[in-house]
Every structure is written in C-alpha cells, then in structure tokens.
Nucleic acid binder design. Structure first.
Lengths: 119, 119
DNA sequence: CTCATATTTCGCCATTTAACGAATTATAGG
DNA sequence: CCTATAATTCGTTAAATGGCGAAATATGAG
C-alpha cells in the first residue's frame, strides 16, 4: 500500500504533473531547465523531484554538475508506475497549461544561453 | 487540468483508496457500512465520499434514508476516470489492509444487524 | 406531528505539505 | 587552492487537508 500511496501522493500536485509532462515530451531534462519552466525556487523543484523519484516515477542521471531527470521506463519501473505514467500522459492530452509549458520549453531548449547542461 | 487534479487528489488518501476498493469488491455500499468499515466519524466518511463523487470516481444513489455509493461505470464516467479506477484495482491486488477490509466487509454485510439499508 | 435514524454541512483543531531562503555539498574551471 | 555554479538539505512559514463533534437536513416510523 505504501508504494502505491507514494505514487498517488506524488501525482496529487500540479507542479509535479507539469514536470512529468515536460519529461514525457522532452525525454530528459536537467533541473535547471525545470526551474526555468516552473518558475519556482531551486529548492522547491528539487523537493518535487525527490518525491517523484521516491515514487519511482522518474530516475536521475548525474552528469558533472548537472542532474538529468527522465521518466522511469518499462524495463526498470514497477508495472504500477508504468501504468500510472501511461494514465497521466493519456489523460492530459490537450491541457492549456501543459501546452504552454511545451512551447515555453521549446524556447528554453533552443536558447543559446544555459546550454551548458547539454540540453 | 482541474478535473484531472481532482482525481489525483482524491486518490491521494488511504481511506479513500480503501473506499474505492470496498466498492470494487461489493459493487455498492451505503454510507453506514463504510463508516463501520473504516471506523471513522460519519462526517469524515461523508467528506471522503464528497471528494470521490466530485472527482466522478463514484456515484450516489439515494434510497430512502440511505445513500448507496458505487464506482462510476464505463457508460457515464469520463475515460480518465475509467482508466484511473482500472489502474487502482490493478495496482492493489494483494494488499494486507485491503484484504483485511474485504474479510471485515463480508462479516458486516452478512450480519443480521444493520440490514436496514438493503444490503 | 413527533421522534429516531442516516447523511451532510459547518466550524474548529492537528497534521501535512508546498513554498521560500540560507546553508551545505559536489563539481568544473581558473 | 579558490571561485563559481548546480543541486540538495534544512529550517521556517503559510496554506491545504484529514479528523472530529455539533448542528442542520432529510426521510421513515409511530
């Protein structure tokens, strides 16, 4: 029950859903991009990512100073996590907030500044 | 986004998950049975049911003094709700809390007392 | 009508949680 | 080594949430 509740609680926040959808679109993002996208304090974003990682919805990859996050994949994620991610992606197909994030993220990723983290 | 967040927030509480699983097993239950099952105050259970109903995860049927709740079905529920309920049921197959509830509920339903609410 | 029962609504309190800033850790570059 | 930057951890605060009891609502029974 506890692993499952960790997932439902992780999904019960709009910022974390936006993070999941951004990762769903972009595949992998470093924390600095998520900070720019959500316009929240680094410590706040870091905590959100901790909760998502704790629920096994995302995994982290450290690369020098940067940490890149991506959705957990079908190989290493429990079935419940795979199903949860599929459910979220399927449910949020045409939301205005997520659509705005998508466009904003495209700009952020193509901007020449902040390109240090590999994108 | 708001309807979706209503669903995720509704799922982010153990008592509400136990309610959903009890309904999944029994098909339909009146509030008084859920009060006995969860051992929470009537006002607390009522609030949980309001949130579940508000998220469209359950529907209510009034029958005299009693109100019976059941999971929203494939006909009237949005696809996201149908998928959410399927995900929950699939994820909580062998949990000890839910299993204890199942046995407890069998006793409650077969007990001669409290039979007023029809089931 | 009056009373009892089932449920909901409301107001309150305790706990949890999201947010921030400051301090800490880790790493790359000079 | 020293500095700058990315990210996390920690402590605090404000808001949201779960719990209860009291009061209100609704309905059936006498």
């Amino acid at each position: 029950m506890l692993p499952f509740m960790n997932i439902t609680k992780a999904l019960a926040d709009e910022s974390r859903i936006r993070i999941l959808m951004a990762l769903h679109q972009s595949g992998e993002l470093c924390v600095c991009h998520l900070i720019d996208l959500l316009e929240l304090a680094p410590s706040t974003v870091s905590k959100h990512l901790f909760l998502l990682k704790n629920a096994r919805l995302v995994v982290a990859r450290k690369d020098g100073r940067w940490v890149h996050y991506r959705l957990n994949d079908r190989k290493s994620a429990p079935q419940t996590v795979v199903d949860a991610l599929a459910w979220v992606a399927r449910s949020i197909t045409d939301d205005s907030v997520v659509e705005a994030d998508r466009q904003r993220l495209d700009h952020l990723l193509t901007a020449p500044l902040k390109a240090g983290c590999g994108s």
